[in-house]
Every structure is written in structure tokens, then in C-alpha cells.
Write a protein that binds this DNA or RNA. Sequence first.
DNA 1: TGTACATCAGTGAACGCGCGTTCACTGATGTAC
DNA 2: TGTACATCAGTGAACGCGCGTTCACTGATGTAC
Lengths: 202, 202
Amino acid sequence: MQGVRKQRAAETEAALKAAAVEVFAEHGYLNTKITDITAAAGRAAGSFYNHFASKEDLLEALLTDLLAETDAVVAADAEHDPDFRNRAAVRYHVASFFAFFRAHHTVLVALQQAALVDQRFAARVAELNSADLGHLAEHVDHVRADGHEPPGPARAVAMAIAKLLWGFGFSQVVDGDTGLSDEAAVELITDLIHRGVAGRLS
Amino acid sequence: MQGVRKQRAAETEAALKAAAVEVFAEHGYLNTKITDITAAAGRAAGSFYNHFASKEDLLEALLTDLLAETDAVVAADAEHDPDFRNRAAVRYHVASFFAFFRAHHTVLVALQQAALVDQRFAARVAELNSADLGHLAEHVDHVRADGHEPPGPARAVAMAIAKLLWGFGFSQVVDGDTGLSDEAAVELITDLIHRGVAGRLS
DNA sequence: TGTACATCAGTGAACGCGCGTTCACTGATGTAC
DNA sequence: TGTACATCAGTGAACGCGCGTTCACTGATGTAC
């Protein structure tokens, strides 16, 4: 029976991660001390360093977990409708984003905060965003194909959409001050993007 | 001649503020040490406390300056077109915002960063945003008046617009990674909001 | 199966670095007479 | 106008707090024979 030790260690590591997420959600990543995490996990301060080299390292681990989960979801996403002239295609993206954001907002916000202070995370976040931007830009380009004219260069429009999603997602999920249900929020943002990108004035 | 002392003190205070803005722009508010500011201003560390109680206090002072400048501008703003069905009315707001953001982005971003870590600034920022939101919401309500239907409750739509402006403003001015001139950025965001709020699908 | 030793996860007091903040000091400016 | 004293802005070394990080220790688990 050589598994008990490893299992105990794995439990402690999981407890530290879970505690970190809790504490990040409550006080924010930047305000969180290592001892806040260990205290919330019910472990001694020194225990932390058996598992993580630093708070940054823990956040990297949380990010790795997040990406692992996400990859599976993204795979299922392959054959969605690319045409943003169809409201349903826009809605699909908006709804996916909100679901993703609601599931992972604590880590996502922690990453944003880390990026403010730490070069490495800034690069990491930029890189992650860049992939999504490329994807969104393709959708925007689709609109142009057939007479419709999106309001600007595809990548710039994609950036605007991304900022809108992140910003409103933050209000909806973290601040909770939009006064809308998640469903209503999805409809609102879908309309805004759909009309904004593919719409005309009547 | 009792003015020389006061003048010297005022110069030092101004130098500290100017140095702070420089250093904030370069390393971010959160990464900036008091001694970074005094060094950039060419003063001794202790001199700082003749003028400000803390880094937060200095940021408050910068905010006060900003608001003083802004009030004058806002006054001239009184008789603008409230009807967001007119593209020009939207454009006016977008252009104003971009000009404001470009002029003050360092302090604005510093405030956002301070808000992450400091309750007091979080409240301050929320309060400042709230006024603008009310204003934007009125414009959105105007759209509803005449057959057009904005994509959701006025205040929620206003929040979405605000997030879009801030988010894209940040990309445009701070990151500088939109690939657009300020003029083109204004046109893009104007179209997006105009179509999104008052537009229909053709 | 039993015993002796090795390894490991966890502990928490102590250490030390970084940085905010203080304070005795300087030299210049202002005031009193 | 001159002199003596007071006040003030600025200086920078030193102090001390907070917190990340270490490390000797403990008790339990694993291994060797």
C-alpha cells in the first residue's frame, strides 16, 4: 500500500486549489496572502510549498485545469454555424461565452489581476485571447461575404465583441448588477452584436 | 516675500504628481513604489509625505484634478442631441469618450487598478460610473419612444455600451493593438452601438 | 509476520527581505525687533 | 538695513511591519531483510 501518501498529498493539493478559488472569489487574487489560502484549506503555511512554488504557480495550475476542461468543450464546438447574419449563430457564441464565464469567472478574473502585475501572465492572457479573436474575426468576415458590411476590419470588430462579452459578463456574473437573468443577458448581448455587426438601420 | 517657499512646495507637489503619472503609465499603479515616484521626480523619499499621506492619497489628488478638468467640459455638453436613432448623436458620445479616455487614460487605469485592491476606490469608481450610466440610459430610452425597440432594459443596455467603450478604449489607447486610427475606432464603435441599439436587420 | 530504518507529507515558529514611513538634521526663507 | 531667531521644505539613513519562505521537527507510511 504505497498509495496512501500520494492520495493524502493529492487531497491537500486539491484542498489548496479549492481554498484558493474561494479566497480569490472573496478578496481577489491580488489581496490574497499565501496564509489566507492555507488557512482556508485548514493546513499549515509551510504545507503550501510542498505543492506550489508560489501563488503564481498555483494560478498556473488552476489555469491548466481550466484549459483541460475547456479543450473538451471546444472540440464539441467544431461544427457550429459560422454565419453571424443568423441570429442563432451569434446567440450560440454568446451563450457559450456566458456559460464559460459563469463556470470559470474566479480563475479568469484572477488571471486578469495577475496580468496587471506580472509580465508573464500578461503575455499568457494575451495569447489566450488571441486565439478567440481569430475565431471571432472569421465569423465577422462571413458577414461581409454577401452584401452586408460589418462596421470595420474583422479583427477590430472581433476585439470589440470580445470586450463587450468580457465586460458585460463581468457585470452579470461577478458584480451581479445588470438586473437581468443570465438568459435575458444572453438575449441582450446577442441582439446587440447581431444588429451591430450584421444589421442595418430601418 | 513669503511666496518662495509655497511656490517651491507647489512645484515639488506638481513634480510628484507628474512623475506619478509617468511611472503609473510605465509600470502600472499597483507595481509602483513610493520611491519610484520620488526618484522619477528627483526628490528624496521623505519628501513625498510633505505632500501626500500615501500613494492612495496621491491618486485621489489626481482624480480630483481630473474631475475639475472634466466638469468644465461636461458643462459645454448640455445641449447635445439625445436621440440615439441619429448616428450623429451616437458618434458625438463615442468621440467624446475616446477624447476623454485618451487624455486621462493613465489616471483612469490607475483608478481601476486601485479599485481591485482597495474598497474605497472600488466604491468611488462605481459611483463615478453610475452617473454616466444614468445619462446613457436616458439616450437608450429615447430610442424606444418611436417604434424602435432597444435590445433590453435601458440601464442594462447602457451598461453594455459603457463596457464596450471602456474595453475598446483600452485596446485602442493603452494596448494600441486595434490597428485603427482614433477616427476609425470612433466610426467602428459608433456603428456598432448605433446599429446595435437602434438598428434592425434588413 | 515482525522489526528496524528510510522516506515523506505536514507543521508552525522563526527568519529575512522589501518597502512604507519616520525623524533628526540641513540650509534656506520668513519674521521680529 | 541688520541681526537673531523661527519656521519650513527637503533629505536620506534607519526603523519596523507584513508577509513570503525556510527548516528542524513530528508522526505516519513505506521498504528491506
